[in-house]
Design a binder for these strands. Structure first.
Lengths: 357, 357
DNA sequence: CTGGCGCTTTGGATCGTTCCAGGAAGTGGC
DNA sequence: GCCACTTCCTGGAACGATCCAAAGCGCCAG
């Protein structure tokens, strides 16, 4: 890589082919400047602050940029501006549950939305013993400008840790009980979702509507449950004996629904997840009951399973596209100058009605 | 390029707090060097080529690194070495089909494996009109070192285009008919998977085993089909009248299986996807037939649906973890010095047996 | 005692961009 | 005719790392 000569590394390059099929090193600011007969800084301005240039000059520079196929070198820009235009997203450990399905949709939306804001998404994995490890490295090496934290609902330490480091981040998920939290967040109103689902069933004439949810220590689970109970009480109906709290597995859902059917004789089920709802469907099948005709079932997350399973599973759908948009907007506020700390934003889910209700 | 003064922009920084709660700018090589009483280059060597240092010096430098919590600045390193240690992965447009589920697992594995090789995964989206747009920008701005292309099986132009640009990339997916292809690739032997599935059914005593696959213009579809027919012919059984080729939807799968049941009376189905298999299950349910007891069904991809649906769906599972490992290995070969162009690698899937067979 | 040879360590240059201070040209007021 | 002011553009410095050529040092042969 020895480039001898007066202007080391620069001269002898102008003969290179532009654009298509170019195989030499990519053009730099200096190349464009030379071609357009202006200084480096002027080219830089043409790219970043076009208003500063005289219209005539701007056109000339833009032509040179076009002819050479110039694009600013990311590394150099990052070094100088101390920004990478990357946001880090940690993939949570693989759990073949429904949460993943939602995650997948969210990532898609996020990548799409970020692009428009000039950001790219950097994935990293935190499967090691220390969940914070990945964050620390990326932060200290200034590899990302900010993080997007998706699992605050696990009561995890990320938020606290990031706050202490003064690392910019936006959370998908409420800080729940954490009163010290001052970071921007976006979340989906799970209670509103289950309330909507329950009302939907009430409107269909159901009066004994059961709940199958997660264990009591899950904030999300309790939140979703509250929507169900609110809707019932609103119509003066009792909830006693109609709720069951179990682990998030198909088997648990099946078991819980079997017990409820025997003891409380509900005509409909609202579940905290599609996984649990699948368990209910299994129990119904075993007893020769037809979902949607004999008993109604509603799930949560509108996962692929809900779309594909037999009569179709009615499910609460999180507006992940809107979540992504809001997250990116908060990110822009946070990283802008001056930085604005956005507040929390709670979005309302929708109900996708299918054959099961 | 004369730098006047001793260390412009550096002095007045040594009073900054180290590590925990540090709010000032992160430490640089020069900071570490000063603290350890060596030159910048020596610190750099301590990080990148520890063998070059005398043991004693190494310890001293490492202590200084530890005390200051130093980590090399990514941007500066990238600029100098002309490498970003990022690999680009384009998320294919959202299609709520089974392919996504596999993609999700693959991304996970890839992120995990890349980390060990010192790479991070940069996601980008190519949903615009031009599928190549994202690639071009990232390449010209030297934002990524290489790409991972996941959808060569669509007969897409990415591979050709990347080759022309001499962009390093590894494909997950065979180049199929493309004889000009000289890039490394990793793929899963779909035919071996369906062959395994068919043999599994044969061993259970089935003799009339039907195929429901994709349309003829799908290379992958035809590949998977060939495994089924090979296994049947191997035992001297005929395939005529037992195959159906349709679109990849639940509805099509249900329709196709209904027709096959009426006309060919198979006792088992092998499907090109879990989606199609779900269609078969639906038809069976409508006719009061029990999967696994009356009729066996095997899907492909071992998606979440296969795990969650009632009796459990037997399915061919792609070894995506191994794919990721092989992809990253090929990547390292490709980007190493000297670059080695790895050859193609075909991995064998496994069969996950569940209640449906 | 000197020259040669490894083994360590060093200072200067460089990667490609943006920040900063200031220069050149044009305009208007007095 | 001079100064103030705006508009447009320029060259040097800086960001923080690595590459490169060479220097210091200890040791041994001649």
């Amino acid at each position: 890589m020895s480039r001898t000569g007066a202007h080391p590394g620069r001269e002898g390059r102008e003969g290179r082919e532009a654009r298509a099929g170019s195989s030499g090193p990519p053009p730099t600011l200096a190349d464009v400047a030379e071609r357009a007969g202006v200084s480096r800084q002027t080219v830089s301005n043409a790219v970043n602050n076009p208003d500063l240039l005289r219209a005539e000059t701007l056109v000339r520079v833009q032509e040179a940029i076009e002819e050479l196929g110039y694009l600013p070198n990311r590394a150099a820009r990052n070094l100088r501006t101390r920004a990478s235009h990357l946001v880090g997203l940690r993939l949570s450990p693989v759990q073949e549950g429904t949460a993943n399905a939602a995650m997948d949709r969210f990532v898609h939306s996020l990548v799409w939305t970020s692009r428009e804001a000039g950001y790219h998404v950097l994935l990293f994995s935190g499967e090691g013993p220390d969940p914070l490890e990945g964050y620390d490295d990326l932060l200290r090496s200034t590899a990302v400008d900010a993080f997007i934290v998706t699992d605050t609902y696990l009561g995890n330490p990320q938020a606290t840790w990031l706050r202490e480091r003064r690392a910019p981040f936006v959370a998908f998920g409420r800080p729940w009980g954490d009163v010290d939290a001052r970071h921007p967040w976006v979340d989906v109103d799970g209670a509103a979702g289950t309330e909507m689902a329950t009302r939907h069933l009430l409107d269909k004439g159901h009066e004994r509507i059961a709940w199958i949810g997660w264990r009591k220590d899950s904030r999300i689970g309790e939140d979703r449950r509250s929507g169900w109970s609110r809707a019932l009480r609103e119509r003066g109906l009792s909830t006693t004996g109609l709720a069951s709290r179990v682990e998030d597995t198909v088997w648990s859902g099946g078991e819980a629904s079997a017990v409820l059917l025997d003891e409380a004789r509900p005509t409909a089920f609202v579940c905290a997840s599609d996984t649990l709802a699948m368990g209910v469907l299994r129990t119904l099948a075993e007893r020769g009951l037809h979902p949607g005709r004999d008993i109604a079932v509603v799930g949560f997350d509108d996962s692929q399973v809900a779309q594909v399973v037999h009569p179709g599973l009615t499910s609460v759908r999180q507006p992940l596209e809107e979540v992504a948009i809001a997250v990116v907007r908060a990110l822009e506020d946070l990283l802008g100058a001056p930085p604005k700390v956005a507040e929390g934003l709670l979005l309302t889910p929708t109900l996708t009605v299918r054959g099961s209700s």
